[in-house]
């Protein structure tokens, strides 16, 4: 079942006052996301991945094109209760775990904010939060009540993942959610996404520049290059039979575990 439909999505940034210059960030992309699907959006910096995510999260208005979630046009949602419904279903994790926290508040705030969307569920909030933190491999007593600057990048990223785990949305847009988590816990956090998928039917749009990682975790890979989706397919298709020259270049950059560097 398709839950998200993106059609001819375009974002053009206009810079300058007198001499206007247009920057085409996202160029006419279309794709669909089905229930329980794990899609990776792979591309280099500046390829439009994050812009696409922000438009889907209804944080950045597209220049043209439409985004429909469960049949409803996302940008025609105006009332706060509709918006809360949308963000309850579709949530995001941002790339920069340093900028994702208001430095003046304890980190508990981002977790407590979730209850603003869920409403009163009758359960004990504190124990729900503690459980979610344990799921991402954090000790609740070590992180609760602390300020963002007291935690490492990896800890902050995991708290963001914990926020999504508390919310259990239908679709998660995760923008490089594990970039600062060390390799030993990375797998555990990624498994959390697949557990959400298996238990709650959550779909994931996983944004990364790491094709190797995308190959491991996703059902489908989309390669973005200069604002366009240049290649789309199952991980095997993309890895074994890349069509676009950029994909071939990306594939060559994936480090292989068993091959040693043979000098330059």
């Amino acid at each position: 079942m398709v839950i998200l439909e993106v059609e001819n999505l375009t974002k053009i940034y206009v810079v300058g006052l007198l001499r206007k210059k247009e920057i085409l960030a996202v160029n006419n992309i279309s794709f669909r996301v089905s229930e329980k699907e794990f899609i990776s959006l792979v591309g280099e910096s500046g390829s439009g991945k994050t812009t696409t995510a922000r438009m889907i999260l209804r944080l950045l208005k597209p220049t043209s094109g439409s985004i429909r979630f469960q049949g409803r046009d996302v940008w025609s949602l105006k009332k706060m209760e509709d918006l809360k419904w949308y963000w309850r279903q579709v949530h995001g994790i941002f790339q920069d775990p340093f900028a994702s926290y208001n430095p003046l508040y304890r980190i508990d705030r981002v977790l407590n904010q979730v209850f603003n969307l869920i409403g009163d569920i009758g359960a004990d909030r504190e124990s729900l939060i503690r459980e979610a933190l344990k799921e991402v491999g954090l000790r609740p007593d070590e992180v609760l009540g602390r300020y963002p600057h007291e935690l490492s990048g990896g800890q902050r990223q995991r708290i963001m993942v914990a926020r999504c785990y508390l919310l259990k949305p239908r679709l998660i847009l995760a923008d490089e959610p594990v970039s600062m988590i060390d390799a030993s816990t990375r797998a555990g956090v990624l498994n959390l996404f697949s557990r959400l998928r298996d238990e709650y039917g959550t779909s994931v749009i996983f944004i990364t520049h790491d094709l190797g990682l995308a190959y491991y975790v996703s059902d489908r890979i989309m390669i973005m290059y200069r604002g366009e989706i240049v290649e789309e397919g199952s991980p095997e298709e993309v890895m074994e039979n890349p069509q676009h020259p950029y994909t071939r270049k990306l594939r060559e950059d994936v480090p292989l575990l068993y091959r040693k560097w043979s000098g330059f």
């Binding site: 999260l57 963000w87 904010q113």
Partner: peptide, 14 residues
């Protein structure tokens, strides 16, 4: 443009 503004916005804060 800071992302924590987006985090609050996504939490349904007006």
């Amino acid at each position: 443009t800071r992302e924590f503004i987006d985090m609050s916005r996504m939490a349904g804060l007006g």
